[in-house]
Every structure is written in C-alpha cells, then in structure tokens.
Design a protein around this nucleic acid. Structure first.
Length: 118
DNA sequence: CCAATGACCGTAA
DNA sequence: GTTACGGCCATTG
C-alpha cells in the first residue's frame, strides 16, 4: 500500500460522525491538492473490514457518486442517514451544513503543533 | 514505456 | 439552482 493512500485514510478517519467531506477536500488535507481522483482510488482499494469511514466522503457537489458497486450509493446513503445526515432521493445533501474540511484542517494543524512541541 | 482509466474539481454557460 | 467540458495525476495494462 502506498504512503499516499495512508495519508488519505488518516484524513478520512478524522471526519466526525454525522459530517462529510468532498474527495477534493480529503486530497487537499492529505497534501495532494491536485489529485482528488486519488482519494477515490484509495477508498476503492479499502479492504472489507477497514475502520476507515469511507461513507463520509462525497463529491464536491454534495452528491453521493460511488460507482464501486451498483448498490453502493444506497448503502452509503443508509450509513449517512444512520448518522443523522439528511440525504434526499437523488443522493444529494447540503454540503453547506455538513462539510467538515475546516474542522479536519484544524485538527490536523493541532496535531502537527502538538508533535512539534509536545 | 505509452495509453487508457477513474468513488473528481473548477469554471463557464 | 443546472449541466458540460477540460484538466488532473497515480494506477493499470
């Protein structure tokens, strides 16, 4: 597994329950601003029993676009709704309310600061 | 090595 | 609010 994938997984793990992030946002916070598609690859490559909350990642339009399997969008919607995220019948949600990029950015900054001066 | 591929993004209309 | 298009870049064949 590449080091890049690990960075992506670390970011996704920081998304709190009931919040989401775009693929581009994940890529940015992982330090690969021009490779949002890579986030998709990384999630596609996730093993079955992984603890990475992949369902909290949607596209920048606030829409579930998961084509890994035909029924994947429905699975993802069920998981999100179970956390209190309102997803409509067209698999869309309000990014304005749920985007956690700033939050994750702060958590990463705090983590880096702590590592620098424990 | 080159070409195709894709859980995408930003901008433009 | 939408959809369409060009660009991105690591992975795959």
């Amino acid at each position: 597994m590449s080091e890049l994938y690990q960075r992506i997984y670390e970011v996704v793990k920081l998304i709190p329950k009931g919040r989401v992030m775009s693929y581009g946002g994940v890529a940015r916070q992982a330090g690969i601003p021009r490779a949002p598609r890579l986030a998709g690859y990384a999630l596609f490559a996730l093993p079955e029993g992984s603890r990475v909350p992949w369902w909290r990642v949607v596209n920048a339009q606030g829409r579930i676009s998961n084509a890994s399997r035909p029924d994947a969008p429905d699975i993802q919607r069920v998981l999100l709704r179970a956390e209190g995220v309102a997803v409509d019948e067209d698999y869309r949600l309000a990014m304005r309310d749920y985007d956690a990029e700033d939050l994750v950015h702060d958590r990463l900054a705090a983590k880096r600061a702590r590592r620098r001066a424990p």
